[in-house]
Simulated scan of single mutants.
Amino acid sequence: MENYKLSKEPLLEVKNLRCYFNDKKLLFKKNKLVTKAVDDISFKINKGEVYGLVGESGCGKSTTGRAILSLVHKTGGTLKFDGNLIYDVENNYSITDKKMQSLRKDMQMIFQDPYSSLDPCMTVENIIKQGMLKHGLLKNKNEMNEVLHILKLCGLRNDCINKYPHEFSGGERQRIGIARALAINPKFLVCDEPTAALDVSIQAQIIMLMDKLKKEMGLTYLFISHNLSLVRYFCDRVGVMYLGKIVEECNAEELFITPKHPYTKCLISSIPKTHPTEKKERIILKNELPSSSDTINGCKFHTRCPYVQQICKNSIPKLKEIEPGHFVACHKIFN
């Protein structure tokens, strides 16, 4: 297995990605509601890197991850993986189904809910072996030994192999989900809130496991989460999403020490205090979070921003670099 450290060579390049959905209830009406789940975002993930994607529920984090793996409809944008163009929606280009099927071996997903993401009618052996058989990775190999190797890698006992998902705890099920994703030796993993359904002690175990596997197998992660403390510990770079837009992106530690965008400051202020004597001012936003289907002119955050100006209501701010590697989309920063 290839073992590489953080590099500046991009493994994944997302450019101008858009995912719009029509309201099915209004399909035959003139005034259709369009939900802009992901609205023109661009970012890169380098080899060996953990890129965090954070934001409130409904901001488009999970849709972004699924769009990268072509699991949802894309309205626009391009995607390059390992230097190869996967799709270019504007030019009506997409790799063939056969090539995409082959690419699944390199791009896998760890789902949020370990209870519903595993087939209850399949044993652990069959769950893990299914992908390996699909991609022809067990030719001239001992199937049982390969499955046991993956189980051991993910901290699971050999006697798990003939059991069904309902016989395990939540943490063990998530380990099975990770084992299933790793069984075909991928390069890139979309981790869609992989610890959200677990208690705190199990969360720590899963994150330590993922960190260990990243180093041993040279993996690259897109880590989607709303747990900011976890993101600060685990991620190398972070993108902050708000209503389908990336409003700030930079190194994880820098983001938490010197946040620039008003929305990022609000998110970070919501992190619970770690010590009773710690002084922290919570920023409370006055208005409710708008819907992704609402028509908002200008900056999408201007309806809740305490620093709103007239330009914010009329003009969409672009994501600009204010310091090396630190990007912000805010009129206040540049005016």
Rank of each mutant, 00 (worst) to 15 (best):
Q101W: 15
G171D: 01
T195R: 00
M132R: 11
T35K: 04
K105M: 09
A183F: 02
T75A: 02
M132Q: 09
H302Q: 07
D39M: 00
M210I: 09
K163G: 12
S57E: 05
L267T: 00
H302V: 05
M109L: 15
S315H: 13
T303A: 13
Y51C: 11
K24S: 14
L17P: 04
P10G: 09
Y115W: 05
E321S: 10
D119V: 06
M208K: 15
K265G: 06
M122I: 10
C121K: 10
N140E: 06
S292M: 02
N335K: 03
V34C: 13
E216F: 01
L148H: 01
K141M: 04
G170T: 05
I283Y: 13
F327T: 00
G65E: 04
E143I: 11
L26N: 12
L243I: 05
I246Y: 04
N22F: 12
H73Y: 12
L69Q: 15
D39K: 02
N297L: 10
C299I: 08
I110H: 04
E216K: 02
P324T: 09
L213K: 11
I95T: 04
A37V: 11
T96W: 04
I178M: 01
K15A: 07
G77Y: 00
N142P: 02
D211S: 13
H275Q: 03
L85Q: 12
